[in-house]
Structures are given as structure tokens and as C-alpha cells.
Design a binder for these strands. Structure first.
Lengths: 140, 140
DNA sequence: AGAACTTTTGCAAATCATTTGCAAAAGTGT
DNA sequence: ACACTTTTGCAAATGATTTGCAAAAGTTCT
């Protein structure tokens, strides 16, 4: 059934106005199932909608992040561009191929470590980020 | 004894030319013992040397990173500025207070996890990055 | 469906961190 | 001190992201 209808409902429930730009961005992210940059999304959507602006993509992505339906991560070691990923499924991390950029989702190994560190430091731990870098089978 | 003499030797050994800018940058990092931004270093050193440029700081930090005597990390969740840290002591990670920015070094819990992931994915794992975010005792 | 109201978008320009080109200055080996 | 190579100061460029503002689109109420 119609995916954009589901997305509409999702946005309405969150009190986010339904615009075609927003639907298209979320559709693309759902379809790709991998972290995308604002530029990736823009490049893909501007062919269908030449009036679309990169700033609109950024504004909406930031909005989604604030509303907790998208997460923003820095994936590459050297480049400083942000990647965005639909928040769905469980909390996970990423393994990134240094050569081809392929991204593999990883389960989180840090529950015990976090509570250990919390006890040792008396910090209240709110979140964490973990990335592994390497070479995928093809690139080795 | 004279620390800048040690630093001179260190640079010479690595085939890096000894300049006063380089010595000052490394001295400051050694003295501060916490990750600093290029802007931090520049702000601190420009009072003694008003001709110093931020680009010089960046160029030297990048050089040190390439020569493996400094590591470059992204510390803050939102801000995109890089932090630089003298490579000394053992491999570690960071716990950062979301409120005051205090940084605590953490031991690395990932040896077993890395080999497990390597087996599962057939990736050759080269490195990893882990950061924890939370509130320090004072900021809770 | 239309009016009134609020939010988002397109567009251009600004911002922030970082890099680069180039001539002058400084470091190095002899 | 000399000839050679690298680094620096300086200005301008770059890349990612954000912002101001008027026009356009979405929402609510009737």
C-alpha cells in the first residue's frame, strides 16, 4: 500500500506539516536504507523537482533529527559532511569501508561498559557513538 | 630540563623541520594535556606572536597528524570543529560532558568486539572511534 | 470550498571551519 | 656564509551548513 500515506500519518502524529518535499525525503531514506548526506538526497530529488533547494533539505533533515525520527552521524574519518539515517530498528553502530565507503550496521556492545564507566566517573551517561573503519572483503 | 630541547629532538628524528611555531604548538599541547582545537591553540599563541596565523596552526597540526605524533578527533556532538591531542600514552577514548565540555579519557573495551566483528563481516578492521556523552558530576 | 492564519519554501547571501596559492622569511647541510 | 628546501604570513578560496525574507503552500475553521 501507499507508503506516502503512512509517512503522512507519521508526520501528522508528530505535529510536522506534510509537504511534498518532506515526503520525498523520507521516502528516499526509507528506500535507500543507508546513511545519506543532504547532498545525496538533494541530488536525487532535484531531478524530479528542479526548484528544490539544498537548504530545504537541510532544514527538513534538522527538523526530523529534532523530532527524533532521523539520526545525524559523522561517518567518514576525513570528510566532515553529516550523514542522515531513518531512526528505525534498534540502536546500532557502523562499520565503514575506508576504500569504497560501504556501511555495515553493527550491534552495540557497550551496555556493560557504559555502566562500568558511569560508576567509575560518576557521569550520567546519555549517549555514545562508535564507528569501526576497515576494508571490506572486496577492497582488501 | 628544557622541554623544547626534547621537542626539537623529537621533530628532528621525524624529519620535521624545527620552527618556533611548531615548538610552541607542541609545548602547549603537552602542557594542556587535553584535546584542543586549532582555534584554541591559535588564540593562546597569538598573544606572544601576533604574526602567527590560523593557517599555520592548521598546517602544522595536519603535519603532526600525518607523522603520527598527534591525533585528530571530532569531540562534540553538534559542532564540527576538530580537536587535536598529542599521541602519548595508550590508545583511549573520550567521555565528554554535554554541558561543560570536560573530557575524560577512557580505556578501550573493544578488542574482543573487533575480532568478533571482523570474523562476522570479513572486514579487515583498521581502526575505531568511540565517544561517550553525558553529564559530569558537577553538571548533573 | 474559501478566508484567515501559520509554517515552509525558494532564493540569495552569510557563516564557520579549514585549505590553498604565492612571495618573503626561516631552517638545514656544507 | 651560501645555496637549497621548506615553512610562514597573508589574502583569498573552498565546502558544508545556516539564515533572512518575501512568496507559496499547508492547516483550521466555517
Amino acid at each position: 500500500m501507499n507508503q506516502s500515506l503512512n509517512l503522512e500519518k507519521k508526520l501528522k502524529k508528530l505535529g510536522i506539516r506534510v509537504t511534498s518535499q518532506r515526503i520525498k525525503i523520507l521516502e528516499l531514506m526509507a528506500e535507500q536504507q543507508r546513511p545519506l548526506t543532504a547532498a545525496d538526497i538533494f541530488a536525487r530529488l532535484k531531478t524530479d523537482n528542479p526548484k528544490l533547494r539544498l537548504s530545504t533539505v537541510y532544514r527538513n533533515l534538522n527538523n526530523f533529527v529534532a523530532k527524533n525520527i532521523v539520526s545525524k552521524i559523522e561517518l567518514k574519518l576525513d570528510k566532515k559532511e553529516s550523514y542522515f539515517e531513518l531512526l528505525q530498528g534498534e540502536h546500532h553502530h557502523h562499520l565503514i569501508c575506508l576504500n569504497c565507503g560501504q556501511v555495515v550496521p553493527l550491534s552495540c556492545p557497550l551496555e556493560d561498559y557504559e555502566s562500568k564507566i558511569s560508576k567509575e566517573t560518576n557521569y550520567k551517561i546519555v549517549e555514545h557513538r562508535l564507528k569501526l573503519y576497515g576494508l571490506c572483503p572486496k577492497c582488501q
